[in-house]
Design a protein around this nucleic acid. Structure first.
Length: 486
RNA sequence: GCCCCCAUCGUCUAGAGGCCUAGGACACUUCCCUUUCACGGAGGCGACAGCGAUUCGAAUUCGCUUGGGGGUACCA
C-alpha cells in the first residue's frame, strides 16, 4: 500500500478514555512519521450505549490533545461518512456477498439454544465453538423457521474460509509491535457478522470500513488480538488487501487491574478538570511503551513523531502511576509563561475575589506561588491568605508558633517598626534583614523571626516569599492581621 | 475451563550473545542551597521471576514452570 492511512475508532459509550487517547496518539505519530493520513471514525453500531454527550466529549478531548484528524465526521473526506450508524446501508451488501460466495450463512439459533451449547462446552472443559448447526439448512428448513417468525443472523463460516485460503489450521500474521502471532482456526467459532436486527457486529463493520477507507495500518490495544484473526478471515473472504496490525500493551492501574473510576480519573477531560496540562498528559502517556532515543523525556508531540518507530514500542502492559505524571505536569507548569499561567489558573481561583488584587498584584502572586504547583488546582489551597481582610489561622500554628513567647516579642516589635516602612518589596527585603539581625542578637533565630511573621500574616508556617506577600497585602492589612493576632 | 499475549529496579523504561560488577527517568533517601514550603544541585538505595538447555560466554536464543494481562457475546 503506497499511502499510509491509519485511524482511531472510538466507540462513544463513555468519555474519551486515557487508553484510547494513547492509541490515538500512537496512530497520529505513525501517520506523522510516515507522511500518512490520520482518520477519525465513530463506532456507534450499538445504539443502546452511545450518547451525544460522549460523542462531544470524544471530539473535544481529541482536539484538546492536539491530534487533529485529516478525515472524520466533522471534516469529511473522500471515504465518508465517518460515523458507522450512517453507514448501515452498506454492510448488508457485503454480508450478502459473503453468503453468495459461501463464506457466510444464515443462523436461526435462539439465545437460549446458544446458551445451552455454551454450557455444554464449559461442562466438558472444552473451548466453546458454535456447533454450525445452521450452516447446512435447506431452503425448506429456513422457510419454516422464518414462518415461525425467527429472524436470522448471519454467521461467518470459518471452516470454509480456512479451506479456501489456508493449508493448515494455523492462522498467522506479523504484528508490527509483537512480531508473529498465531491462532488455531479450529478454535474460532463461526461468529456473527450481521445481527438478526440487521445491524453489523463490530468485527464485520470494522473490516468493511477499514477496507473501504483504505486503512493501511491498524494500531490498537492488545485486547483486539483475538478479533484480528476473525478480521483477517473476513478480509480474505472479501478478496480485500489485509492491512498491517500493531497491538499495543494496555494501560493498567497500580493494582494491575483495568484502569477504572475507582482508581481516579480515567477520561482525558477528568484529568484536565483536575488541573493537568494536556501537553503533559500526552507526553506522559507517550512514555508508556515508547522511550526517546536521546534520553530526554520531555518532548512535544512533533518531537516525538520524529523519533517514533512503531517496532520499538514495548509489547507489554504498563502501569499508570501518578508520581511521574505529577512530576511531568509540574515541569510543564514551569514552562508556561506568566501570562498563560495566569489565565489557566483562573478556573481554580473562582472561590476568591480576584478583584481584590490589581493586575500587578495578581501577577506577582502567581509568580511567587507557582513554584511548588504540581497540578493547577494546587493553587486553590496555596493562596487563601492573599484574599480577605482576616486570615484563618491553622490550629497547629496557633499552638506551636504563635503561643511561643518569642513570637509575641517579634510581632510587637514588627508592628512598631512596620508602621514606618514603605511596603515595596525592595524596602521590605532590607528592613526584614535588619529585623532578623536585631533578634538574632537576642538569641532568636532568623527562622523563628520569620515564622512568627508568616504565621500572623498568613496563618501558616509555609508559603510564598514573605516580602512578596507583605507587599501584595499592603501595610494596612498586614498590620491589622498582626495586631489581631496579638 | 479453553485460547492468546506479556515478563529488567516500587513504577516507566534502555538493553537486539561479550561494551552490563545492567544505564536513564519518576518515587524514596542523604547532604548542599535557603527567612518557611518548594525549586535547584551533588550523592545513595534499588531489577535481569524460577529452573533447565544452547554457547567459550546469556538480561539478551530455546523449552518448561510461575506470575500478570487479554479474549472467550447477535458489546465495541
Amino acid at each position: 500500500m503506497e499511502q499510509v492511512r491509519v485511524r482511531i475508532a472510538p466507540s462513544p459509550s463513555g468519555n474519551l478514555h486515557i487508553g484510547t487517547a494513547r492509541t490515538a496518539l500512537f496512530n497520529y505519530l505513525y501517520a506523522k512519521k510516515n507522511n500518512g493520513k490520520y482518520i477519525l471514525r465513530i463506532e456507534d453500531t450499538d445504539a443502546e450505549r452511545t450518547s451525544q454527550e460522549y460523542i462531544d466529549n470524544i471530539f473535544d478531548s481529541l482536539k484538546a490533545l492536539g491530534l487533529s484528524w485529516d478525515e472524520g465526521p466533522d471534516v469529511g473526506g473522500e471515504y465518508g461518512p465517518y460515523t458507522q450508524s450512517e453507514r448501515f446501508d452498506i454492510y448488508p451488501k457485503y454480508a450478502q456477498m459473503l453468503v453468495e460466495k459461501g463464506f457466510a450463512y444464515e443462523c436461526f439459533c435462539t439465545p437460549e439454544e446458544l446458551e445451552a451449547e455454551k454450557e455444554e462446552a464449559t461442562k466438558n472443559k472444552q473451548a466453546y465453538v458454535y456447533s454450525k448447526k445452521c450452516e447446512n439448512l435447506t431452503e425448506e428448513e429456513k422457510e419454516k423457521l422464518r414462518a415461525e417468525g425467527r429472524k436470522p443472523a448471519i454467521r461467518f463460516s470459518v471452516s470454509k474460509a480456512q479451506k479456501a485460503f489456508h493449508n493448515s489450521s494455523m492462522l498467522k500474521f506479523n504484528d508490527l509491535v509483537k512480531g508473529e502471532l498465531h491462532q488455531d482456526m479450529d478454535l474460532i467459532g463461526d461468529f456473527v457478522i450481521m445481527k438478526s436486527n440487521g445491524t453489523p457486529t463490530y468485527n464485520f463493520a470494522v473490516v468493511i470500513d477499514d477496507m473501504l477507507m483504505k486503512i493501511s495500518q491498524i494500531i490498537r490495544g492488545e485486547d483486539h488480538i483475538s478479533n484480528t484473526f476473525k478480521q483477517i478471515l473476513i478480509y480474505e473472504a472479501l478478496g480485500a488487501e489485509i492491512p498491517q496490525f500493531g497491538h499495543l500493551g494496555m494501560i493498567l492501574a497500580p493494582d494491575r487491574s483495568k484502569l477504572s473510576k475507582r482508581h481516579g480519573a480515567t477520561a482525558v477531560s477528568e484529568f484536565v478538570e483536575k488541573g493537568y496540562l494536556i501537553d503533559a498528559l500526552v507526553n506522559f502517556v507517550a512514555l508508556l511503551g515508547w522511550s526517546p532515543s536521546d534520553g530526554n523525556e520531555i518532548k512535544s508531540v512533533d518531537e516525538i513523531a520524529q523519533d517514533f518507530r512503531i517496532g520499538e514500542l514495548s509489547a507489554s502492559n504498563s502501569i499508570f502511576e501518578y508520581d511521574k505524571l505529577n512530576w511531568m505536569n509540574s515541569q510543564y507548569i514551569k514552562k508556561l509563561s506568566l501570562e498563560e499561567l495566569k489565565e489557566r489558573l483562573k478556573p481554580f481561583l473562582e472561590k476568591y475575589d480576584l478583584s481584590e488584587l490589581t493586575e500587578e498584584q495578581y501577577s506577582r502572586m502567581v509568580e511567587v506561588t507557582r513554584e511548588p504547583l504540581t497540578i493547577l488546582s494546587d493553587i486553590t489551597d496555596a493562596v487563601p491568605y492573599f484574599f480577605g481582610e482576616n486570615v484563618e489561622i491553622e490550629e497547629s500554628v496557633k499552638t506551636d508558633v504563635l503561643a511561643a513567647e518569642n513570637s509575641k516579642k517579634v510581632l510587637k516589635e514588627f508592628v512598631e517598626r512596620a508602621k514606618n516602612w514603605s511596603f515595596d518589596e525592595e524596602t521590605l527585603h532590607h528592613k526584614l534583614e535588619e529585623f532578623r539581625g536585631f533578634f538574632k542578637e537576642q538569641g532568636i533565630k532568623p527562622k523563628e523571626t520569620m515564622w512568627a511573621i508568616r504565621a500572623a500574616v498568613t496563618g501558616r508556617t509555609r508559603g510564598a516569599d514573605m516580602c512578596a506577600i507583605l507587599a501584595i497585602l499592603g501595610k494596612d492589612k498586614v498590620i491589622k492581621r498582626v495586631n489581631q493576632c496579638l
